[in-house]
């Protein structure tokens, strides 16, 4: 059992890491990755929502009729998201302003509903929680990687700390929406190359 839990947890970091491996949750990954700080905030919000929704979905999995399960899952997820919204507003107000509309949009983040539908409704609560935690942290790592590239090259800072000399002009394109698409595409391509190398070596 313990081994299963660890396995479900770790798969979120490489084998099934989203959105790098699975094209799920691309939208927030592009939108909030101009700064590492906002990427971290978004990541932890998603971790919380995923754990809560996975846990609750797993708890009610035997009593919910199949036909209305999506409606029930969506209600649970939306509740978790509103809790995050309220708590963030109360204790992390500046972060809440930066993330703005992307906090309520966690509701329609495919990862959250996807994990409820594909995993939590078929598995006991322990496994579901570790799956949610792993997936959420994997998502956070992906976001931070993208945001690091964009923030370091785009504005010459990391988490607000300058990494280049003060006269670094900044690569503004990366901070603009088109830059996000290009960086993310290139990152996916390099993931493809790396995992193909690994497969070849193992074969």
């Amino acid at each position: 059992m313990a081994a299963r839990i660890v396995q479900e947890f770790t798969k979120g970091f490489w084998k099934e890491i989203a959105p790098l491996r699975f094209a799920l949750g691309i939208c927030p990954a592009l939108a909030v990755s101009t700064k590492v700080e906002s990427a971290l905030g978004m990541g932890f919000a998603v971790v919380f929502v995923l754990c809560l929704s996975n846990g609750l979905v797993s708890l009610v999995r035997h009593i919910v009729p199949d036909k209305v399960r999506i409606a029930v899952f969506i209600s649970i997820i939306a509740t978790a998201v509103v809790i995050v919204e309220l708590v963030m507003q109360a204790y992390f107000y500046p972060l809440f302003l930066v993330l703005g509309i992307w906090i309520p949009l966690i509701v329609v983040n495919c990862i959250v509903l996807g994990r409820a539908e594909a995993f939590a409704r078929k598995n006991p609560i322990g496994l579901s929680l570790s799956d949610g935690l792993g997936m959420g942290l994997g998502f956070t790592v992906s976001l931070v990687v993208i945001a690091s590239i964009r923030e370091v090259l785009g504005s010459g800072t990391w988490l607000g700390i300058p990494v280049f000399p003060a006269d670094y002009p900044g690569f503004g394109f990366l901070l603009r929406p088109p830059g996000a698409f290009v960086i993310f595409g290139l990152l996916l391509a390099s993931m493809n190359v790396i995992s193909r190398r690994i497969e070849k070596r193992n074969a």
Binding site: V60, V68, V72, S75, I76, T79, I83
Partner: peptide, 18 residues
Amino acid sequence: VVLTCVTVVCAGSLAAVR
């Protein structure tokens, strides 16, 4: 019954957090 219960519990807990 399930749908009603779920929505009531959701709305209730949100009201509490609020």
